[in-house]
Amino acid sequence: MKLLAGLLVLSVLAAVATATTPTCPEDDGATPVFYPDDTDTHGFWECSNGKAVHLECPAGLVWNANINACDWPSSRK
């Protein structure tokens, strides 16, 4: 049973490690840079000082790349 639990943990860690982190500009400009999370519709990336920071939309909302904001799922069409 411990072996199975250990394999499950390793699988989850491997999936997280292979998630694509976007490349951000080194300097913050006047307009923030956002990227959608390709694996989670509730998540998105915001660039800050050359690094991508992963953020989550509040419960019930999803990331809408058209407006660069969290939005109701029905509005994403």
Rank of each mutant, 00 (worst) to 15 (best):
L7R: 00
L8F: 05
L8K: 00
L8D: 01
V9F: 03
V9Q: 01
V9M: 00
V9K: 00
V9W: 00
V9I: 01
L10W: 09
L10H: 09
L10R: 01
L10V: 11
L10E: 00
S11N: 03
S11L: 03
S11Y: 00
L13W: 01
L13C: 03
L13I: 07
L13E: 01
L13N: 01
L13S: 05
A14W: 03
A14D: 07
A15H: 08
A15C: 14
A15D: 08
A15K: 08
A15E: 10
V16G: 00
A17M: 02
A17C: 05
A17F: 06
T18L: 08
T18S: 11
A19V: 02
A19G: 05
A19Q: 15
A19C: 00
A19H: 09
T20S: 12
T20Q: 13
T20F: 08
T20H: 10
T20N: 11
T21Q: 10
T21H: 12
T21I: 10
P22Y: 10
P22F: 10
P22C: 12
T23W: 02
T23H: 12
C24M: 08
E26R: 02
E26M: 01
E26F: 05
E26L: 08
E26Y: 05
D27Q: 13
D28Q: 11
D28W: 03
D28I: 02
A30H: 01
A30T: 00
A30E: 14
A30Y: 05
T31M: 11
T31Q: 12
T31V: 14
T31H: 12
P32G: 10
P32I: 04
V33R: 09
V33K: 15
V33E: 11
V33N: 07
V33H: 07
D38Q: 14
D38P: 10
D38L: 02
D38V: 06
D38W: 07
T39I: 04
D40I: 07
T41Y: 04
H42W: 03
H42Y: 05
H42E: 15
H42R: 15
H42L: 01
H42F: 00
G43K: 14
G43S: 14
G43Q: 15
G43C: 09
F44H: 12
F44A: 10
W45K: 05
W45G: 06
E46I: 15
E46M: 06
E46A: 13
C47W: 08
S48H: 10
N49C: 04
K51M: 05
K51P: 01
K51A: 09
K51W: 03
A52Y: 03
V53E: 12
V53T: 12
H54I: 13
H54M: 07
L55V: 01
L55T: 04
E56M: 09
E56H: 11
E56D: 11
C57Y: 14
C57E: 14
C57N: 06
P58C: 06
P58I: 06
A59G: 05
A59E: 15
L61G: 12
L61Y: 15
L61I: 13
L61K: 11
L61T: 13
L61C: 14
V62A: 11
V62H: 04
V62P: 12
V62C: 13
V62S: 11
V62N: 06
